[in-house]
Amino acid sequence: MERVPILKIGDTLLVSIQIDLQDQTVLALQEDLAERIVQTQARGVIIDITAVEIVDSFIGRMFATIASMSRLLDAETVVVGMRPAVAITLVELGLSLGGVRTALDLERGMKLLDSGADLR
């Protein structure tokens, strides 16, 4: 099983998903992230899905789980770079990703975290 690398930039953790995610990888990523947030005392998490071609309910739910979990650990999550086809499919599927913040690209995601105060 492949693991998704987690990079640290300042007090932000960056997860850039470049592979076709299988369920075990998704579960491992959730665990790894929780540990890294505590370890690094990160205040923000950015999940970059620019390269992700499909998000099904399992992967979609991962975003919501990571967001709730990191919030408990005092970090804010932003999902960036969702492709139009993926967004349309998620809406059709009926998955709302409730509570997950999104941004068009990595740069805007960073800005969103920086302007952090009113995020909650």
Partner: peptide, 12 residues
């Protein structure tokens, strides 16, 4: 409605 929701998912 779906367009608006999908745009939101993308961050717009």
């Amino acid at each position: 409605l779906k367009t608006v929701v999908a745009a939101r998912l993308m961050g717009a």
